[in-house]
Design a protein around this nucleic acid. Sequence first.
DNA 1: AATGAATGAGCATTCATTCAT
DNA 2: CATGAATGAATGCTCATTCAT
Lengths: 216, 216, 216, 216
Amino acid sequence: MKHTDVETLFADNIKTTDLSEKQQKVLQASLTLFAQKGYENTSTLDIAHLAGVSEGTVFKHFKTKDGLLQAILNPFMHDIFPRVAGEFIDALHESIFDSFESFIRYVVKDRMTYAMDNRQEMKIFIQEMVKNPAIMTTLTNRLSKLIQGGVDTLFHEYKEKGELVDWDSMRIIRMASGVIVGYLIPNVIMSETPLDIDKTTDEVCEFLLDGLKPRD
Amino acid sequence: MKHTDVETLFADNIKTTDLSEKQQKVLQASLTLFAQKGYENTSTLDIAHLAGVSEGTVFKHFKTKDGLLQAILNPFMHDIFPRVAGEFIDALHESIFDSFESFIRYVVKDRMTYAMDNRQEMKIFIQEMVKNPAIMTTLTNRLSKLIQGGVDTLFHEYKEKGELVDWDSMRIIRMASGVIVGYLIPNVIMSETPLDIDKTTDEVCEFLLDGLKPRD
Amino acid sequence: MKHTDVETLFADNIKTTDLSEKQQKVLQASLTLFAQKGYENTSTLDIAHLAGVSEGTVFKHFKTKDGLLQAILNPFMHDIFPRVAGEFIDALHESIFDSFESFIRYVVKDRMTYAMDNRQEMKIFIQEMVKNPAIMTTLTNRLSKLIQGGVDTLFHEYKEKGELVDWDSMRIIRMASGVIVGYLIPNVIMSETPLDIDKTTDEVCEFLLDGLKPRD
Amino acid sequence: MKHTDVETLFADNIKTTDLSEKQQKVLQASLTLFAQKGYENTSTLDIAHLAGVSEGTVFKHFKTKDGLLQAILNPFMHDIFPRVAGEFIDALHESIFDSFESFIRYVVKDRMTYAMDNRQEMKIFIQEMVKNPAIMTTLTNRLSKLIQGGVDTLFHEYKEKGELVDWDSMRIIRMASGVIVGYLIPNVIMSETPLDIDKTTDEVCEFLLDGLKPRD
DNA sequence: AATGAATGAGCATTCATTCAT
DNA sequence: CATGAATGAATGCTCATTCAT
């Protein structure tokens, strides 16, 4: 029930476009600095220094500073997010969750682990979303359609079995993701706190399960 | 059951420090632009233009660009947030909520209204939090202490009456605010959507009430 | 054998142009700050603050910042310097110096005292001279003519009496003032050192007297 | 009896730090303009224009405007002044001056030539000294120690031979440099006058020799 | 006369980007 | 491919000066 690691996909992505060793260093430095100080407060010279390359090298492959940002975010937007989402849904259908509880427990833990494993990228993503709401709109639409399509039939089963409240799937997802997001964001941003994923999962699930229990 | 409007408090604050008409325009323009384009992407010339003043005027009172940011955020951090929280708690004790449901409904609606009424300030706040996690840590601590102190006894009543699950107050608050925040943030950031507060309140409350119902 | 004090002349000058109390404070503050930090590094706001007046007041009487500088330097250039020089020469003729030695001793002490009593003004003067050589040229010409005219006959006497070398008067003056100036400038600029005038006078005179003794 | 030319040392210094052609132009332009109009009255745009480079280039190597000033003055303070002083003293000991007169004549001419050859740098130095007396204090201490150490024994010889007054070496140096400085400064500052070094040397020396002759 | 808010030109400095080597 | 010197537009900020009150 393991999903392809984001780092692996990311590395794949890099190899695909045939990135030289120095260019990889540049990308890595950008990732670190954008997450640490924000996009606008990171100069291309900062990146060059941290990557141990010259100023010109920063632009050789990625053309512009924005190109560097896109090189970090695009895989998330157009490739990794959907792919992970797809794999996630596939996993849902392949595995037989004996109950809605085991399902929700898997989902929560999986997404939390994912987010915490990729804090830096997430942080940059959040920063960009806040500045550019269009990203959020796009992403919300993309993901919700994808998830809804894959989850609808599954939810139907659980509703029939009397384990899930008979709400619109989107409403359920919005609620669930609201709880998860509200819980996660502070931990992503305040990266000092490590977060006990198992304990948090327990807490969140106990709450979610009752909130999403069928009404009497 | 009305709470002092933030705009009123803000205006008070401005009058207190005796801000000239032009300086108010400067502050207003900063608010608008910081929220729209982000702090770093707003130049002091942009602010001057929108405020209809000269660039020198921008610096006359607020000294630096950061001073302008603080003039916007400080009232939230040090004055308005706590005051609103205080008033909110007072309101809780003065009013007799006949049930946990009417209580939770008031809270959710009140906080949502507050947030939506001050979208711009919230947006800037969120941006700064993402960049500077220390703000979040401070704020979280300040508010949670304040709220917990005021809410603990109230929760005790509801727990006794069997209307509220017997969890630690902090856990309940974290859950509830997680749902509200997870719901609100997208709407604050994507400010085009107006958001139907009554409908959203209903949705959120229905979910929360079951999630926080005592366990059988 | 006392010469009119510069401060008195300065005060006279101020009263003549009918300067209000605040304007005098402005002038005094300018004097202090120009001497301390230099003309260009002193802002009109600095002056206003030190004088305890508003920004506008600084310009009310003196029109421009340069006007303030001129108000400080002009009395030296066009009034005080020549007047002092005149008085000095008058004093020379009135008093009967029994020897060239008593004459030179008087001159050296008198000029040194004058310079040290007006360090601030001197310092500003020096700064302006360095930046604007024209001032120096003008001043040099003005003073040398004045002094030469008044001193020539006197020198003639001493030369006849065999107490002074038979050089051109200008050459003598240039030498003497060279020694004095070379000795004074460091002390004017490094205003922390108080300088023992009597001892310095002795040293300088002993040296000067032999340097200006008639050749065998 | 030739001392290493300052320009050569300066050029060495530049080559050592590997300054590009444009950067040398920047330095040269700064030298010219600082001397001409003073540090504060020279804008970095002025420098860029005179150097024929862009404004960014001015900051590429020297980082700040002050860095440019230091790049001009530091060689004088920390390198060239002491080195020249050292070479000067070496020269004194190597060469055998048959008399105090030939010695003093060499010194006066040498120092005058040096000063007039480096008028621009000297002028900037003087400006900075006037503004920042600490520089003068430091320099005075550094040089006097250096010179005294090297000159003491030499003076002893001349005193024994009855060619030099029996004063403390420092007093002699202060007097002599006072005359030279008093003579030079006007000529350094009013750079239009070319100054006849040979004639001036004669005048100064004649005066100095008698002033420093042993007392009867 | 005095005030201080307002002005706008000017300044040092930064930084993404280009290009010759 | 990599380098780093050069670029020039943009930026935050200062400051002498004006003017309505």
